[in-house]
């Protein structure tokens, strides 16, 4: 079981690293922010896999909080990007 999980983990990391390209290249702010959110999803998935692999249910809480709070930066981005009527 665990070799399979380890392979899944590595594949997920590889996909996350692939998504990094958009973060680095952009070109626009929204591209970067959205790909960061995508990476957040991959990170959640990896945390869940790690919880299973290392037999640490506590990591599920980590995944939960990560999923909840990754939105904070996105909301901050959207709210702060609104033109403020200047």
């Amino acid at each position: 079981m665990s070799p399979v999980l380890a392979v899944i983990l590595t594949v997920l990391l590889a996909s996350l690293l692939g998504g990094l390209w958009r973060v680095i290249r952009g070109p626009s702010d929204s591209d970067r922010m959205l790909s960061a959110q995508l990476l957040g999803t991959a990170a959640v998935a990896m945390t869940v896999v790690l919880a299973r692999l290392q037999d640490m249910p506590a990591l599920l809480d980590v995944a939960l909080v990560l999923a909840l709070l990754a939105a904070v930066t996105l909301v901050a981005y959207v709210a702060l990007s609104e033109s403020r009527g200047r």
Binding site: L39, A43, T47, Q54, L59, V62, V65
Partner: peptide, 17 residues
Amino acid sequence: MLMALGWARLVAPDVAL
């Protein structure tokens, strides 16, 4: 986020949280 994964690998769930 990657640091948090690192904490998870180092068996430090509190720090990851």
